[in-house]
């Protein structure tokens, strides 16, 4: 009883963090017992994934709970690693070297705008300044063959992995929502939790019920059953974790819907990138998951959309 009382005194984000850790304990025990009852290769794979989830949850919680500078550096590293995985699988030209250098240099600059909370610069730095400068830098290398292909590769990488992902960091530094206990930290938690659970439940529903393929040439394992099952589950989860946000019930469902659809989109867009480059995974950083990008692909889509919708409706 006393413990429950203590739990209720925690901030919403810590309560949600506690629930997630509880779910992980539950999942770990569940998979371990299922492995005993009905042994199979699938449980080894699932067990591996859960082990990686422990790691990722721990790192993420530490990153958003410690001070703001640490959090911003954490997200900058996320962008760095994602962009690194992306350019490695691409077929870049020798002439792209200097432009790619500038693309990487964009990361600390973009996160610096987050650090000093200069919203105007944060929002135009990449789409205006960098997108005008990078093609010019490519032109200076004087290699017209493949110019358009190179500039679209570099710009899309910046858009998704630096501009898109940096919205998580900006969300984190946002102040309290006026007239609500929700703040940037709890909103970020809601966003990441729903995005990741949506991924997981699309996978689970697809594995158990999946029949009709949704985009067979891009991602042969994805099915309508997985997508819709994930969507419904995410709507429910959105309602459950509404206490992290200023949303009323319809708004929570609406935001969960946006996250589910956008998360799916991010996932399949990055699948198309992988397919085009002829690789299966972006890397081997996270056991059972592939590279960092295989984990944050959905967030490249959900983070900017969630951020701008929340900012428009809840921050006057």
């Amino acid at each position: 009883m006393a413990l429950l009382h203590r739990f209720q005194e925690l901030s919403a984000t810590y309560q949600a963090g506690g629930i997630v850790l509880g779910l992980l304990v539950f999942a770990t025990i569940l998979v371990a017992s299922l492995q005993k009852i009905k042994p199979g290769a699938i449980w080894t794979e699932v067990g591996q994934r859960i082990k990686s989830w422990w790691m990722m949850v721990a790192v993420f919680l530490a990153a958003i709970a410690l001070n703001r500078t640490v959090s911003i550096i954490f997200f900058a590293c996320l962008s760095f690693w994602a962009l690194k995985e992306y350019v490695t699988i691409l077929d870049t030209r020798r002439a792209d070297h200097r432009a790619l250098f500038w693309a990487f240099l964009t990361i600390p600059i973009q996160y610096y705008w987050v650090g000093i909370q200069w919203y105007g610069m944060f929002i135009i730095f990449i789409p205006v300044y960098m997108f005008l400068f990078l093609p010019m830098r490519l032109v200076m290398a004087q290699a017209p063959a493949g110019f358009l292909s190179s500039s679209s590769k570099v710009q899309w990488g910046l858009m998704a992995f630096v501009f898109g992902l940096s919205h998580m960091a900006y969300l984190l530094v946002m102040p309290h929502v006026p007239g609500s206990s929700a703040n940037g930290q709890s909103l970020l938690f809601f966003l990441v939790l729903l995005t990741e659970l949506n991924d997981i439940f699309q996978y689970i529903w697809g594995k158990t019920l999946g029949k009709r393929k949704i985009l067979p040439t891009i991602s042969p394992k994805k099915t309508w059953e997985g997508f819709l099952g994930g969507l419904w589950t995410t709507l429910v989860i959105g309602l459950v974790f509404r206490f992290l946000t200023p949303f009323d019930a319809p708004a929570a469902i609406g935001m969960a819907f946006v996250i589910a659809v956008a998360g799916f989109s991010g996932d399949v867009v990055m699948s198309a990138v992988k397919r085009d480059a002829g690789v299966k995974d972006f890397g081997a950083l996270i056991p059972g998951h592939g590279g960092m990008l295989d984990r944050v692909d959905s967030l490249c889509y959900t983070a900017p959309l969630f951020f701008h919708i929340v900012r428009y409706f809840y921050y006057p």
């Binding site: 690194k84 350019v87 490695t88 870049t92 070297h97 200097r98 790619l100 250098f101 990487f104 890397g283």
Partner: peptide, 18 residues
């Protein structure tokens, strides 16, 4: 593998290719 993408002959700033 990939070392020449990170730092090809004639460049002096290495890029973080795996």
């Amino acid at each position: 593998s990939n070392m020449w993408r990170s730092l090809p002959k004639g460049e002096f700033i290495p890029l973080p290719f795996f």
